[in-house]
Structures are given as structure tokens and as C-alpha cells.
């Protein structure tokens, strides 16, 4: 089994590594395709200063040398200098922002799972169709309200009207600033998790072996806990990479609205400022997280249902 697992992981890595390589290469050359240079400003720079700048950033070298250097830098975790935040390297900016973003994202994911799974199970077990329908309507609503609409609304109610929580801002070590952003970010994945859990649980409860277990006289709670939960969570597990992607994209707007100094805000700022190296670095980091997430989910699948996981490979 261990050998099979290793083979499985290696196979997945064979897809993951080229994917990352494609991302790095495509973004590198796309930047070079761009009309205008990174130093184009409202007033044209004097030519000698421009030349100096280009030399300083290595832009006067042939393209493949620049590409080689960039790859070499990446191998050492060096994303190059930021074109706009002149005193920082991209790596420094990422290192600053990453803990905040990670905390926000992981909390949102945790909230989505911790609320969505029980609610989904509850809806699946609900005897009265009204309860099920009501819960699912809430889920549909949750899916329909984007984070960038929800967060300002939450801020309006809890921040402006009741003054319980700060609308925006950040103090290290003070979780109060994270409450509203986390909930705004968690809503859509929560709704999706609830729907998926309900569907998965319904299907698992209808399957033969679960019905047999129930017929043997096991109480419902034991049936759910021991037999139905694992297969019911399979669709949730396969939703995790999109959930992480959704939280990561959501964090772009949420960090911008709430003024959290995470990497999402840097990405948006970088995009608006056309800070190539910064955006490139961010895209690579985000991609790496997503690819890593895919691998983690495969491992989770292996635990939940080895048969399916190996088939998927």
C-alpha cells in the first residue's frame, strides 16, 4: 500500500511541478510582452537615469539571461526587487503579508467547515422538509452574496451602527480586526460546504451498507458517525481546492476593504500600480499554494476512500 501511495504522489507531483513551471515561465514572458516598461511614468525619465535603472534591475541583459537569473533567484526564494516599493524586495513584502493572509484564510476555511458540515448533516437528516428547505435557502443566499458586498454591509451594521467591531484596520495580536473579514470570506464556501455535505450525506444514507447498518439496530447517530460520515465528506474534500481558491480570491477584496496588510492587498496595489515583479511574485505564490492544496486534498482522499483516490490517479 505504501508503495502504491508513493507512486500516486509521484504521479501527482509530475503534474504539479510542470504546472508551476508553466506559470513561472508564462508570467515571466508575458511581462516582457507588455507594452511599455516598468518605469514609464507620467513624465518621461531622462534617458541616462532610465539606462541606470535598467542596468540596476538587470533589464539591459538579453531576455534568456534575465529568465535564467529569475529562475535562479526563485530557487533561492528570491522574487527580485519591487518596482514600486523601492526599499523592499518582493520576498520581504510577501514575508510581511503572508502571516496575516494565512491567518485570515485559514480562519475562514475553518469557520466554513465547522459551520457548513454540521449544518449540511442537519439538513440531510431533517425529517421536516421545511427545515431542510429553509437551511438550503440560506445556503443559496450565502452563495449569492459576494464577500465584497457582504463585508461593507457587516461593517455598516456591526461597525457603524452598533460599534461592536472595527470596520477596518489592523493591530498585530488583536483578533477583533479579523472577525468581520473572516465571516465575510467564509460565507460562500460555508454555503457550498453545507450543500455538498447534505448531498453527500443523503447519498450515503441511501446506500445499501448504511441502510443495512441501520436495519441491524444501530442508532441513527452511530450510523451517521461511523458509516455515513466518511463517504459523505468525499464531495466536500474534492471541493477544498476550489474553496481555497475562492477564499484566496475573496481575500483580495476583503483585505483591500478591511485594510489588512496581507498579500492580497499587495497584489491589488501591485496590479493598480503595474508593479510587475510584485504581481508576478504574488501570482507564483498563490499558484504554489493552490497546487499544494491539490496535493493535500489527494492525501485527504487517500484517507477518506483509498479506492477512489487511486482510481483518480
Amino acid at each position: 500500500m505504501a508503495g502504491v501511495m508513493l507512486k500516486f504522489l509521484l504521479r501527482r507531483l509530475r503534474v504539479a511541478v510542470p504546472t508551476l513551471f508553466v506559470i513561472v515561465t508564462a508570467s515571466f514572458f508575458l511581462v516582457r510582452l507588455a507594452p511599455g516598461g516598468p518605469f514609464d511614468q507620467e513624465q518621461a525619465l531622462p534617458p541616462e537615469i532610465l539606462a541606470n535603472l535598467q542596468r540596476a534591475y538587470g533589464l539591459d541583459r538579453p531576455l534568456w539571461v534575465q529568465y535564467g537569473r529569475y529562475l535562479e533567484g526563485l530557487a533561492h526564494g528570491d522574487f527580485g526587487p519591487s518596482f514600486r516599493y523601492k526599499d523592499f524586495t518582493v520576498t520581504e513584502l510577501i514575508a510581511q503579508g503572508f502571516p496575516v493572509s494565512a491567518e485570515l484564510g485559514l480562519l475562514a476555511l475553518a469557520v466554513a467547515l465547522a459551520c457548513g458540515v454540521p449544518l449540511g448533516i442537519l439538513a440531510a437528516l431533517a425529517r421536516r422538509p421545511l427545515l431542510d428547505r429553509g437551511l438550503m435557502l440560506c445556503a443559496a443566499l450565502g452563495l449569492a452574496v459576494p464577500a465584497f458586498v457582504l463585508l461593507p454591509l457587516l461593517g455598516l451594521v456591526f461597525g457603524v451602527h452598533w460599534r461592536w467591531l472595527p470596520v477596518a484596520g489592523w493591530e498585530p495580536g488583536s483578533p477583533r480586526f479579523l472577525v468581520l473579514p473572516v465571516f465575510a470570506l467564509a460565507l460562500a464556501p460555508f454555503a457550498y460546504v453545507a450543500r455538498l455535505t447534505r448531498g453527500g450525506m443523503r447519498e450515503a444514507l441511501a446506500s445499501d451498507y448504511v441502510r443495512t447498518a441501520h436495519a441491524k439496530g444501530l442508532p441513527l447517530s452511530a450510523v451517521v458517525w461511523r458509516h455515513a460520515l466518511r463517504p459523505a465528506l468525499l464531495p466536500v474534500a474534492s471541493y477544498l481546492p476550489p474553496a481555497v481558491a475562492s477564499i484566496m480570491t475573496g481575500s483580495l477584496v476583503v483585505e483591500s476593504i478591511a485594510g489588512l496588510p496581507g498579500i492580497g492587498r499587495y497584489l491589488v496595489q501591485g496590479a493598480l500600480n503595474r508593479d510587475y515583479t510584485l504581481v508576478m511574485g504574488m501570482v507564483i505564490v498563490y499558484s504554489a499554494i493552490l497546487v499544494l492544496m491539490g496535493l493535500l486534498v489527494d492525501l485527504l482522499y487517500l484517507w477518506l476512500d483509498p479506492r477512489i483516490a487511486l482510481e483518480r490517479a
Binding site: V15, A16, P18, T19, V22, I23, A26, S27, L30, V31, L33, A34, P35, A245, M248, T249, L252, L267, G270, A271, R274, D275, Y276, V279, M280, M282, V283, Y286, S287, L290, V291, G294
Partner: peptide, 21 residues
């Protein structure tokens, strides 16, 4: 398709808007 699916396309779109305006 598999490789494209693995790409975080939204970030790529943001990236494209950075590059091409």
C-alpha cells in the same frame, strides 16, 4: 486542459490587466 485547470486563472486575469492595461 488539465494544466490550464491547475492554473489560478483569476490571478492570471489580474496579471493580464496589469500587463495590457
Amino acid at each position: 486542459l488539465e494544466v490550464l485547470d491547475g492554473l489560478p486563472l483569476l490571478f492570471f486575469v489580474i496579471f493580464l490587466t496589469v500587463i495590457f492595461g
